[in-house]
Amino acid sequence: MLELRLVQGGLLKKVLESIKDLVNDANFDCSATGFSLQAMDSSQVAVVALLLRPEGFERYWCDRNISMGMNLNNMAKMLKCAGNDDIITLKAEDGSDTVTFMFESPTQDKIADFEMKLMDINSERLGFPEADYHAIVRMPSSEFARICKDLSSIGNTVVISVTKEGVRFSTRGDIGTANVVCRQNTAVDKPEEATIIEMNEPVSLTFGLRYMNSLTKATPLSNTVTLSLSSGLPAVVEYRIAEMGYIRFYLAPKIEE
């Protein structure tokens, strides 16, 4: 059986909101490593990988590895019924085809349980090799989201280039072109406001803005985002979930034919 009690229930709500538009169905895996998910979008361009480590849960009990197939839209519907400050507990009995979400208000004066049907999902796990990236950019997540949103009103693709000058986001469309350059900036009041650029060699990659905008839905999960880039390889866009884990998106680039 499985029982996971998450005091910061709002976090699970944010996780679902950040992935439900990209992926329809996914297996949530529960093991000693943590509560995890890996799922690909239907166009096979983006993969989302989530890890919530056991330490982040007040109670983390699963007596064997368990995989639970869920429709993410339905799961999001259920989690929307939880308050942002509620404690959320996931429960599943061995062999059951349902999962129960229990929501407790912080003052324990309201307790609700929602039972959701599980589904069988055949999903292949991808192996992501450790890579030495040409450039790694850490910047405020809200700034990255703003840039992606702004550029998508001009064009459909974004070219992300890292040079000694900084990181450049460029697009072009019928009405014109747009360039946004962010320079390294560590002279900030709070560490999360910094832009840090580690460059081993210059890199330039093109991505569909539709996908970039979709993955910026994870912005509420973290103040910062890390972009790991290598020429001709998928980008890794990571939002760290404080002291608990991460949500990572692997996004295939567009390549000149």
Partner: peptide, 14 residues
Amino acid sequence: LAQQVQLLIFYGGV
């Protein structure tokens, strides 16, 4: 024009 490629080109299943 740049063409969108799929992730499976880069990562095999495990």
